[in-house]
C-alpha cells in the first residue's frame, strides 16, 4: 500500500500559563490512496488538533508541533515553510468543518468563494473558474448551479451549505480530504445524503479521507479503517468490521457498548465511568487506567506500548502483552 499520508511520532503541544498541555502526544498512522480512515475519540482527545497539525493551522503562538513528521506523498509538511503551505492547503489537503452554517463567508456569494479557491490554486481565469465551480456544484447535487453561484450563503440550508463546502474542498482535486465532524450539525436524513456524497466523491476522484468524528454510526457508514484516540494517544487501530465485532482496547469496548442496540434485550445503556483526564495531567501509567474496568497493578505503574497483533491490529494495552509480535 502506498501511503498518501504518513504521520509519525507527531507531538503537538500547547503552552497555557506556563503549563504544557500535550494535545497530541506522539501518534503514528498512515492513510493509503483512496482509503477512508476514521479518527475516533471523545471531545478533547486531540483529534481536531491532529487535523489542524496536518493543515499547519495549529493556533500559534500557544500551540506548536514540537516533534514528529507529517509526510504527504513523502514530503514533510512540518518542515515546510508557511509560504509553501499556501499551495498545499486547499489543493493537496482540503478540509471541511463541523459547522456548515458559519463556515461560509456571509458577505461573499457562493460563486465568489468557490471561484476564489479555484483561481488561487489552479491559476485559471475567472471564466474557467466559474465553469469549474458550476460543474462542482452540479456534482454535489445542485440542480441549478448557475443560480446557486449568485446566491449568498444565508439563502441555503445547512445541508446545502455543507454540499457547497464539499464542492469547495473537492474543486482542486485534493489528495487528502480532512472531514472534521462533517455531519454533526446536520439532521439525520441530511447526514445520510452527505455521507453518501462523500463516499461517491472519494471513489470518483480516488481521494483519501481522514474522517474525524465521535459518531460511531458515521464511522461504520464511511470508514474502512478506524483509529481510536484517547488523551492525545492512539489506543487502537483496526479495520472497521473487526473493531465493531471484537473491540480490543477496553476504551473502544466502552465506546461501542455505549451505543444503544436496536436488536436484542433492552438493558440499561452502559457508559464509561469517569472523565477524560484534565489536559496537562501526567499519569505514571496508562492514561485510561483510572477509568478502566480491566485495569490491574501494572497499568498504573508502566506506560503501555503499542502492541501489533498477528492479524495486523494495533492496540495500546497490557492485556495483549502475550500476543505481541513486534
Amino acid at each position: 500500500m502506498n501511503a498518501v499520508l504518513e504521520v509519525s511520532n507527531l507531538k503537538t503541544y500547547f503552552k497555557k500559563n506556563k503549563k504544557t498541555i500535550r494535545a497530541v502526544d506522539g501518534i503514528d498512522f498512515e492513510i493509503g490512496k483512496g482509503e477512508t480512515v476514521a479518527l475516533v475519540g471523545e471531545s478533547g482527545c486531540g483529534k481536531s488538533m491532529t487535523s489542524l497539525s496536518i493543515m499547519g493551522l495549529v493556533p500559534a503562538p500557544a500551540g506548536k508541533v514540537v516533534d514528529g513528521s507529517i509526510k504527504l506523498n513523502g514530503v514533510d509538511l512540518v518542515q515546510m515553510p508557511e509560504k509553501k503551505m499556501y499551495d498545499i492547503r486547499g489543493k493537496e489537503v482540503a478540509m471541511i468543518f463541523q459547522e456548515p452554517m458559519t463556515s461560509l463567508n456571509p458577505v461573499l456569494t457562493i460563486g465568489d468563494q468557490l471561484t476564489g479557491v479555484i483561481m488561487h490554486h489552479l491559476k485559471v481565469n475567472k471564466k474557467t473558474a466559474t465553469e469549474k465551480a458550476a460543474e462542482m456544484l452540479g456534482i454535489v447535487g445542485f440542480s441549478d448551479p448557475l443560480k446557486t453561484l449568485k446566491d449568498y450563503p444565508h439563502r441555503l440550508s445547512g445541508g446545502m451549505r455543507q454540499r457547497v463546502m464539499i464542492a469547495m474542498a473537492m474543486s482542486c482535486n485534493p489528495k487528502l480530504l480532512i472531514a472534521d465532524e462533517p455531519t454533526t450539525a446536520l439532521d439525520v436524513t441530511i447526514q445520510a445524503q452527505v455521507l453518501e456524497l462523500m463516499k461517491d466523491l472519494s471513489k470518483k476522484f480516488s481521494t483519501s479521507i481522514l474522517l474525524i468524528t465521535h459518531d460511531l454510526g458515521v464511522v461504520s457508514e464511511l470508514a474502512e479503517r478506524v483509529i481510536v484516540m484517547y488523551a492525545g494517544q492512539i489506543v487502537e487501530i483496526s479495520d472497521v468490521d473487526d473493531l465493531f465485532e471484537e473491540p480490543l482496547h477496553p476504551y473502544t469496548e466502552g465506546l461501542i457498548h455505549s451505543i444503544p442496540a436496536i436488536e436484542g434485550e433492552i438493558t440499561r445503556l452502559q457508559s464509561i465511568k469517569g472523565n477524560v483526564p484534565a489536559p496537562g495531567t501526567v499519569l505514571p501509567g496508562c492514561k485510561f487506567a483510572p477509568r478502566c474496568s480491566k485495569a490491574f497493578a501494572r497499568c498504573t505503574e508502566e506506560v503501555p506500548g503499542m502492541y501489533v497483533r498477528e492479524d495486523g491490529r494495533c492496540v495500546r494495552c497490557f492485556l495483549y502483552d502475550g500476543e505481541v509480535v513486534e
Binding site: 493551522l57 499556501y86 482540503a94 478540509m95 459547522e99 458559519t102 463556515s103 463567508n105 479557491v117
Partner: peptide
C-alpha cells in the same frame, strides 16, 4: 469566525 478558518484552510 469559522469562515476565516475556512479561508485559511483554502490556502489564502
Amino acid at each position: 469566525q469559522d469562515y476565516i478558518r475556512t479561508a485559511k484552510a483554502n490556502g489564502f
